[in-house]
Design a protein around this nucleic acid. Structure first.
Length: 107
DNA sequence: CCATTGACGAAGA
DNA sequence: TTCTTCGCCAATG
């Protein structure tokens, strides 16, 4: 297989596969896609890529919400809360409990 | 085709 | 302990 181009494909598939009420980290997604060091690529794809995917379920390794989300952290936070995820922190520093909401495709 | 970006991660100061 | 810097590699312009 040629994982190179499939990277974005894997990212899209994984993000779409994240069940409601769960989240995944960029690093984990990158690792599952074959490039553990391409965490930025995931974020890059998210930025360049379509908004058609549940990017609001994707958080950074600290469980913090993304910093360039199209609707801002408050938008992503609202989306997560809307799915039953408890979001802690204040404006600009939202975060979720990875211990509780982190999801894995093998799960 | 070349240069720059990018919503991260981990290490260093 | 927090802040800063480097590295990673794909996608966009």
């Amino acid at each position: 297989m040629q994982p190179s181009r499939q990277f974005s494909e894997n990212v899209y598939a994984l993000v779409e596969c994240i069940p409601k009420g769960r989240v995944m980290t960029y690093g984990q997604i990158a690792g599952l896609c074959g490039n553990a060091r391409a965490a930025r690529i995931v974020g890059g794809i998210a930025h360049y890529g379509p908004v058609s995917l549940p990017w609001h379920r994707v958080v950074n390794r600290s469980g913090g919400l993304a910093n360039g989300y199209y609707g801002g952290q408050e938008g992503q936070k609202a989306a997560l809360v809307n799915e039953g995820v408890e979001v802690f922190g204040d404006s600009g520093d939202y975060k979720v409990l990875l211990e509780t909401y982190l999801w894995s495709p093998n799960s």
